[in-house]
Write a protein that binds this DNA or RNA. Structure first.
Length: 418
RNA sequence: GGAGGGGUGGCAGAGCGGUCAAAUGCAACGGACUGUAAAUCCGUCGACUUCGGUCUACGAAAGUUCAAAUCUUUCCCCCUCCA
């Protein structure tokens, strides 16, 4: 329980966030010193703006930063405006497509929003701060960089790094551009150390190579010990990464994914994952987590509801979480329609093809798919399977001003008449 | 620059003149069973369709042929080895 002196590391270990640390006792001592004296330790989490929102797969390090802040430390969030222009080769087979300036700017905005859900930003001592590595890379001189930084890197060593090695082993192309990625991330760490006194980097375990790049550079160039701390990659029982639902990513930003869907993602977690998810995706105290994960069979559904609610609350706010939960109860427990379901509005439903309505809701990708699903009894109107693929709506289908459409057992939506 | 190998559906990977909308596996989706779980079983998986078909697809373009993912030419891209 109290294997560590610092509160932060104890929490990390207990909740399943701890994977690897560059120097466990050193980091522990450092944090403990800060916690005792009330001066915040500074740590950073980096993320490249390659998309306009983070998704569930990114939550693990975000939650680590959240706890870091709760333990009285100061989180820095770095968006990789510069590094996104390079592309992190870790875990990838191909060079990323280049992003336009406009996309980058949009993505950075999206990332800020995502970060804001989990961390408190501001100007206080413990408030999170957002930085962009474009600020220090945009004007860097190539020769100066090679001489100041390049001298500290050994190509022999770089070639053994997982991100490089795996690419070479698989005979996938790796450009010199990508090869340099780790130097940039290493430089970031040192830059943050100099500017903010940042001595810790927190990330997923796939970043290990990039992190050690920074800690080694720090030791060689600035003679300072920097710490790297990683989480395990969280997978479901099939060994797949978390964060995909129906083939789509579960986004953190609300304009990318309704809160109801976000809630449902956690509601539908597998039994085996409940304990793990409660620890990682909620702030619930450990006593409560242990009680909930001990539940068996049907009772475990209660734990899943709490998990879904708590996880949604952090990311979308309490109100949204309640609304999502209420809708879920109406739809699944009472078999009626809930207000948070996706819906389309239409002035007259007379003569509207059922297939077109499903298409508009995005429940089917094509008319052919809709026809197929009808044959398989997979599409329902007001909970009754459609049998005629040419079915057109009539006034008789409208109940309380709306028609409930369902695809399979999980996807439900509404047509509202206005 | 030289010599070989290769680019096929979301991914992996067969096919190498017609029977190819393209084997197989994974992923995904629907149904049954359940607990909005897992596992299992059955089914589906390019688009449009008046369900007879029509159209678009095997890196790009041109060509040979009654017929091309399959043959030829050019171009683009990738890999390996050599310089």
């Amino acid at each position: 329980m109290s294997a560590f002196k610092s509160q932060f590391l104890n929490i990390m270990a207990e909740r399943g966030f701890y994977n690897q640390c560059t120097n466990e006792t050193g980091f522990d001592d450092y944090l403990y010193g800060c916690e005792k004296s009330g001066t915040p330790a500074v740590g950073y989490l980096g993320s490249d703006p390659t998309g306009d929102s983070l998704h569930v797969g990114h939550i693990v390090p975000l939650m680590m930063m959240r706890w870091f802040q709760k333990c009285g430390h100061k989180p820095l969030t770095l968006v990789g405006g510069a590094t996104a222009r390079i592309g992190d080769p870790s875990g990838k087979d191909k060079l990323r497509p280049f992003l336009s300036e406009e996309t980058l700017a949009e993505n950075i905005k999206g990332l800020k929003k995502s970060f804001g859900k989990f961390l408190k930003f501001g100007t206080g001592a413990h408030d999170a701060v957002m930085v962009d590595n474009w600020d220090w890379f945009k004007n860097i001189n190539y020769l100066a960089f090679l001489r100041d930084i390049g001298t500290y890197y050994s190509v022999n060593r770089m070639l053994t790094m997982e991100s490089v090695k795996s690419r070479l082993d698989r005979e996938q192309p790796m450009s010199f551009l990508e090869f340099n990625y780790m130097l940039l991330q290493g430089y970031d760490f040192c830059e943050l150390y100099q500017k903010y006194g940042c001595r810790a980097q927190i990330a997923g375990s796939d970043q290990w190579g990039n992190i050690t790049s920074g800690t080694e550079l720090g030791r060689r160039k600035y003679d300072v010990e920097l710490f790297g701390f990683t989480s395990p990659i969280i997978t479901d029982s099939n060994g797949k990464k978390m964060g995909k639902s129906e083939g789509n990513a579960v986004w953190i930003n609300d304009e990318k994914l309704p809160s109801y869907d976000y809630y449902q993602y956690f509601r539908n977690i597998g039994d085996a994952e409940v304990g793990k998810c409660l620890r990682i995706y909620t702030d619930l105290p450990m006593d409560e987590v242990r009680r909930l994960e001990a539940l068996k069979d049907k009772e475990i559904n209660e734990a899943k509801k709490i998990l879904a609610f708590e996880a949604t609350k952090i990311c979308r706010g309490e109100e949204e979480a309640r609304a999502a939960q209420a809708t879920a109860v109406q739809v699944f427990e009472q078999g009626t329609a809930g207000g948070e379901l996706p819906s389309i509005e239409i002035s007259s439903i007379e003569g509207l093809h059922a297939i077109d309505a499903f298409l508009q809701l995005g429940f089917v990708a094509s008319k052919g798919e809709a026809r197929r699903l009808i044959k398989q009894a997979g599409l329902k109107i007001n909970d009754k399977a459609i049998t005629d693929e040419n079915y057109k709506f009539s006034a008789a289908d409208v109940v309380n001003g709306q028609i409930k459409l369902s695809q399979g057992k999980k996807k439900h939506g509404l047509i509202k008449t206005v």
